[in-house]
Amino acid sequence: MSFVSLLGVGVIGVMLGCICLVSQRKSLFGVLLSMEVFTLAVYVVIFSELWVLGELSSLCLIFLTFGVCEAALGLSVLVSLVRGVGSDYVSGLVSGHF
């Protein structure tokens, strides 16, 4: 796979993640999924840049570790929100039931 196609996939993934993140207005689960798409797309961009430079250091592994930690924290917040409020809709948070 060439550099241009890998970088193009990453850039398209970043744009898709941003569009999905902005368009999510109801569900917190959808926001978490779009943030994961964004994180993985940024990982692809970083990986492709470091691959071209020939320096595949531990930066990719560190970034992926932070992405997994972000996903775990988001899932724990989602579970506690569903247990406390009863749903993951953002409109339930605005009314002050949390």
Rank of each mutant, 00 (worst) to 15 (best):
V44L: 05
F3K: 03
L53C: 12
W51R: 09
D88V: 08
V77C: 13
L61G: 03
G86V: 06
Q24I: 10
L93Y: 01
L78V: 01
C69M: 14
S5L: 09
S2Q: 07
F38M: 12
V14M: 03
M1H: 05
V45D: 04
S48V: 05
L40P: 02
G8F: 00
V22P: 08
H97R: 15
A71E: 05
L78H: 03
V68A: 02
G54Y: 09
L56D: 05
G84A: 15
E36N: 05
E49F: 12
G92V: 11
M15D: 09
C20W: 13
G10E: 00
V85K: 10
I19C: 08
D88Y: 14
L59Y: 15
Q24N: 11
V31F: 06
S76G: 09
A71G: 03
R25H: 14
L93I: 14
L75Q: 04
V37S: 01
S57V: 00
F38S: 07
C18M: 08
V68W: 06
L53H: 11
C69K: 04
K26C: 11
V77S: 08
G96P: 10
L75A: 11
E55D: 09
C20Y: 04
L28Q: 11
S23R: 15
L50A: 06
V85F: 06
V9R: 02
R25C: 14
L28E: 07
T65H: 08
S91M: 01
C20K: 09
L93K: 04
F38D: 00
L50S: 06
G13Q: 01
V90M: 13
C60Q: 06
S23E: 12
V85P: 05
A71N: 01
F98P: 13
S76T: 13
S23F: 02
V79S: 00
I46H: 09
A72M: 14
S80A: 15
V94M: 13
Q24C: 12
L61C: 03
I46A: 10
D88R: 09
A71D: 01
M35D: 02
S5T: 06
R83G: 13
V37N: 05
H97S: 15
L21R: 08
V37W: 00
W51T: 09
M15S: 10
S57K: 15
S2E: 05
S23Y: 10
V85N: 10
L28C: 09
V94E: 14
C69Y: 14
L61R: 12
L28D: 00
G92T: 13
E49A: 13
L6C: 08
S2R: 12
V14K: 07
G54R: 04
S91C: 13
Q24K: 04
F66C: 08
C20V: 09
C18Y: 06
V14I: 13
L78G: 02
V79K: 10
L56C: 00
M35Y: 14
V52Y: 11
